[in-house]
């Protein structure tokens, strides 16, 4: 496969992942009411999601974040950010005291994941799935007109057959209202809404993960393209000095064309200089001193090595 074909494949993957994210966001933004009409889930959850993701980005932004350079990278960055906002807005239970706990947890987990250059770590995905299940559960309860998380029966009291005890025979946990949940005025039709939200969530998560991989591949292709502007032998040497696996850590991703070439130049010069330094040290006589056993034999050994002329290194060039 030619390089250009490979690069176009990475671009296609990047675009396809952005389409998935946008479609997922679309499905997460609607719900079905009892008359079968599509109703929006409201801007409030979206704004809360925006704040959470922004906070996570800011808390983790001590690293230098790459800046989009062209249309494609700008679209990729926007889709990645909005995709995360859609997912967070889609899983948040929009109301009740538990929402603040959810917000805190999400900011901590997403910030930690972002500092490792991957918003969607395995832990973050597990947390998001758990939150989605929680939201689906309270929506299900709401669709049955049961406005609490669950009702627990009080032991002993609940077994007594006296109606006057009914108010204390069970305890309601986590009460909420349809307004808090952003239900449509005509009531929520749970099954189609469940289908929309779960498919939307899955599309967003798959899109985000795919986008991360495609973006990495796209950046690697750019670095590869810059290196292969050199004569083939020299390009191969540079790729051996700067292995592809180290490119993200070496800060080669997200740079402008000019900055990328300057950075490769700096890194190659620095690495070759350190390699030479190492070689020189390895071939120096001073290194032999470390093998001196000391004592009578050592004194003789030192006298012999100190008086001997330096052996020229095979790597030293005149």
């Amino acid at each position: 496969m030619s390089f250009a074909t490979r690069m176009r494949l990475a671009v296609k993957q990047l675009l396809a992942s952005c389409v998935l994210i946008a479609l997922g966001g679309l499905l997460l933004g609607v719900q079905v009411d009892s008359s079968g009409a599509l109703v929006g889930t409201g801007f409030a959850p979206l704004c809360i999601g925006l704040v959470v993701v922004l906070a996570a980005v800011l808390f983790s932004s001590w690293r230098e974040a790459p800046v989009p350079r062209d249309l494609l990278t700008a679209l990729s960055a926007t889709s990645g950010f909005l995709g995360l906002v859609f997912v967070v807005a889609g899983v948040l239970a929009p109301g009740g005291g538990w929402m603040f706990f959810e917000l805190l947890l999400l900011v901590v987990v997403l910030s930690r994941a972002a500092t490792r250059n991957a918003f969607l770590s395995r832990g973050a995905i597990v947390l998001l799935v758990c939150m989605l299940l929680f939201r689906l559960w309270i929506s299900y309860q709401g669709s049955r007109h049961e406005w609490q998380l669950m009702s627990l029966e009080v032991p002993i009291l609940s077994s007594l057959p006296f109606e006057f005890l009914a108010p204390v025979q069970s305890v309601s946990l986590g009460e909420f209202s349809p307004r808090e949940l952003g239900f449509p005025p005509a009531g929520l039709s749970f099954t189609p809404s469940l289908a929309l939200w779960t498919v939307g969530f899955a599309l967003c998560i798959v899109g985000l993960a795919w986008r991360a991989r495609a973006a990495l591949e796209h950046e690697n292709d750019r670095v590869h393209e810059a290196i292969h502007e050199l004569p083939p032998t020299l390009a191969t040497l540079v790729e051996r000095v700067l292995p592809e696996a180290q490119w993200p850590e070496l800060g080669l991703h997200g740079l402008s064309e000019r900055a990328l070439r300057k950075r490769i130049e700096e890194l190659v010069v620095a690495r070759i200089a350190s390699r030479r330094e190492l070689d020189r040290a390895l071939h120096s006589r001073a290194l032999l001193g470390s093998t001196n056993p000391g004592g009578f034999a050592g004194e003789l050994y030192r006298a012999l090595t100190d008086s001997a002329p330096d052996v020229p290194s095979s790597t030293d060039t005149p």
């Binding site: 675009l15 952005c18 389409v19 994210i21 946008a22 479609l23 966001g25 679309l26 997460l28 933004g29 609607v30 009411d33 009892s34 008359s35 009409a37 599509l38 109703v39 929006g40 889930t41 409201g42 801007f43 979206l46 679209l75 926007t78 889709s79 909005l82 859609f86 449509p184 005025p185 005509a186 009531g187």
Partner: peptide
Amino acid sequence: VVALLGVAVAVRGIEGAPR
């Protein structure tokens, strides 16, 4: 994609008709 992202945000504002 930009249009789709715009629609994904805009649909959230669809008001439900009262029952």
